[in-house]
Design a binder for these strands. Structure first.
Length: 597
RNA sequence: GGCCGAGUAGCUCAGCUGGAUAGAGCAACAGCCUUCUAAGCUGUGGGUCUUGGGUUCGAAUCCCAACUUGGUCACCA
């Protein structure tokens, strides 16, 4: 039980003793006391005025008196208007820090075999182009979310549904066949996904030229788009693929192999991974059975052309097509099929889809359909819907080559980190390998934190011309603080100062020190909140606040140089605990923290 | 047009389960390294929380409307 919960109970008790009424826990709002007032936690008494029938000041005084009597954790209190500021006994903070420092996994719950199973789908790339900044946001959010759910005691399966079939894949294939001259990753030195992406762009360029030519011959744009020879060829190729044509399938396999090799490199670099990968080429036929089953059960209905539909008008939505007249699947059908396979493979309690907000409607419909078709978790599926990453000039478009490439971006960030380190002369004593490892950690940390600190729902703009900052509210600032603390701890050990052992319980602590313990202790509830709201940003903002406070503390107080040994010990333990929480918290964001930088 | 988001400092964003004088960072300016890492710390300036109503002891936060902006409304995925 956290201190807040404990005090909340005490407040309820105090009110019952004073006014004979048991108030709901939701009314006892305890908030952190504002910096300009004395105290650690503040009880807002306005909600109790009806019960006390007294003015705010009197009510607060009475509750404060009562609390002092019944709650030993409270040392004193003061009242300002309707706010009852509670001062927590220093011994409570010391005991709390002692406990935290002895718990190597403070704030992190460990899943057991009985824990609920959460499956998180993220990444889900198309195999016709390399990953770009939009994917980076998806991957970082998905990975972080998985870490956060684990830390909340869930078993987590990370999954990726690779979109490896469809007309867009055929476009790259066709262009390569026509204009590739047998180019391979080996022959060109290009990363596989980049090579394939290059031909996706080639296709689009040639296709546009054909459309333009047809329009000059008098066709409307709409007609020209349908009649361009290239698109007709691509469609023919898709039909061949679906018919299992040897040549097309061989080409498809070869090019997909290139892409996967490229993706693997990018995933590894970003530090994300998956427990189970599904391929759409293997799942896209699966949904059909489930849909036909639904048709038999009368959940779905058939139209005259024998296409199958779901009627969602009772739910305030439209009718939704699930099987075409010719019996082939659409996107929704595939998602139903994938869901079926997943449910066969795992006892899923909760499913989280990390997919952009342009698909909000799709997932609203999917939830309803899965529920109708009998998936227990269907109705409660979570669409973790995040906003677009836009450039200053607007949306990124792969086909037009106006994208920020994931590999390039990571490379740039690492390079910047390297330069900054050199300029500051921080790594002079390090080997080449160590310096490079630190540059990678810091560069990636800057990128990941930059993306994860903002509310996922919001669109974000990224200006490639202004590089991501390394000062202020950034990943490197947090990493730096961690390195700084570790450095102090190393020095302590070097000087033969023990960091383990009990903290003296009769210390006088400065307000700043008490506040630091309070802030560190909050980590536990922050992790819970992040899990409940699926929000890496909550973690990021908390760590930033912690680190900012710590740097002020570091600046204003001696640690190793403190002459009072008991106090020095307290500060060392505090520092160690801050470092530990930084490390745990950053891990939830998928960000590593270095020992030195 | 229907439905779903978002609008807070010059810029990027916190705060949003209603609570005290709305907070950070960046950018600008002024300070702080012979002592634990200056990727740090301190200070100055910068706000009609889009607008208008409503609920409330109290609204950036909740409700309604308008405006701006993004998405979506395919037998594409």
């Amino acid at each position: 039980m956290t201190l807040e919960q404990k005090l909340s109970q005490s407040a309820i008790e105090a009110i019952r003793a004073l006014y004979g009424e048991t108030v709901n826990e939701s009314l006892t709002q305890l908030q952190k006391t504002k910096k300009e007032f004395e105290g650690h936690l503040t009880l807002v008494v306005f909600p109790f005025l009806k019960i006390s029938r007294k003015n705010p000041e009197q009510t607060a005084q009475e509750i404060g008196q009562k609390l002092i009597e019944i709650e030993p954790a409270i040392a004193s209190f003061n009242v300002i208007k309707g706010f009852l500021n509670l001062v927590i006994d220093t011994k409570v903070w010391i005991a709390m820090l002692q406990q935290i420092s002895e718990n190597g996994t403070f704030g992190i719950k460990t899943p057991t075999n009985d824990s609920k199973l959460v499956m998180i789908e993220y990444s889900s790339p198309n195999t016709n182009k390399p990953l770009h900044l939009g994917h980076v946001r998806n991957n970082l959010l998905g990975f972080s979310l998985a870490e956060i759910m684990k830390a909340n005691g869930y078993n987590v399966v990370k999954t990726n549904i690779v979109n490896d079939r469809g007309i867009h894949i055929c476009k790259s294939m066709l262009a390569w066949q026509k204009w590739g001259n047998g180019e391979t990753p080996e022959s060109s030195g290009l990363k596989g996904d980049h090579l394939v992406g290059k031909y996706y762009v080639v296709f689009d360029k040639e296709y546009k030229a054909q459309i333009k030519a047809l329009m000059e011959q008098g066709q409307t744009e709409e007609v020209a788009k349908k009649n361009a020879p290239l698109i007709l060829e691509a469609q023919a190729m898709l039909l061949k693929w679906e018919a299992g044509d040897d040549e097309v399938v061989a080409l498809w396999k070869m090019m997909n192999t290139w892409v996967y090799a490229g993706f693997d490199v990018t995933y590894k670099k970003m530090g994300v991974d998956f427990d189970k990968i599904y391929y759409e080429s293997e799942t896209y036929l699966e949904g059909k059975g489930k849909v036909l089953e639904g048709l038999e059960n009368g959940v779905l209905f058939q139209k005259e052309d024998s296409s199958v539909w779901a009627d969602l008008t009772p739910n305030g939505l439209d009718e939704k097509l699930l099987l075409r007249g010719d019996g082939t699947s659409v996107y929704m059908t595939q998602d139903i099929g994938t869901a079926k396979l997943r449910f066969d493979d795992y006892p899923i309690d909760k499913m989280i889809y990390v997919v952009g907000n342009e698909q909000n409607y799709h997932f609203q419909v999917l939830a309803l359909l899965l529920d109708k078709l009998g998936f227990s978790w269907g109705k409660d599926l979570v669409h973790f819907s995040y906003g677009m990453v836009e450039l200053p000039e607007g949306k990124m478009k792969s086909r037009e080559g106006t994208v920020v490439d994931a590999d390039d971006l990571v490379e740039e960030m690492v390079a910047t980190a390297r330069e900054t380190s050199q300029e500051l002369g921080k790594l002079d004593g390090c080997t080449e390998e160590e310096a490079e490892a630190i540059a990678t950690t810091v560069g990636l940390g800057a990128l990941k934190y930059f993306i994860l600190k903002v509310d996922p729902r919001k669109n974000m703009t990224f200006n490639p011309k202004e590089s991501i900052d390394f000062n202020g509210n950034t990943g490197p600032f947090i990493q730096y603080t961690h390195a700084r603390i570790r450095s102090v701890l190393r020095k302590a050990v070097d000087n033969g100062i023990a960091i383990d052992g009990a903290i003296a319980t009769d210390l006088q602590l400065a307000e700043k020190e008490q506040n630091m313990v309070q802030l560190v202790a909050n980590f536990e509830s922050v992790v819970e909140e992040a899990g409940n709201t699926y929000s890496p940003a909550v973690i990021a903002n908390y760590i930033y606040e912690l680190v900012k406070e710590y740097n002020q503390f570091y600046h204003d107080f001696y640690i190793i140089r403190e002459e009072n040994e008991a106090l020095r010990h307290f500060r060392l333990v505090l520092s160690k605990s801050v470092a530990q929480v930084i490390k745990s918290g950053m891990k939830l964001l998928g960000i590593e923290v270095p020992e030195r930088m």
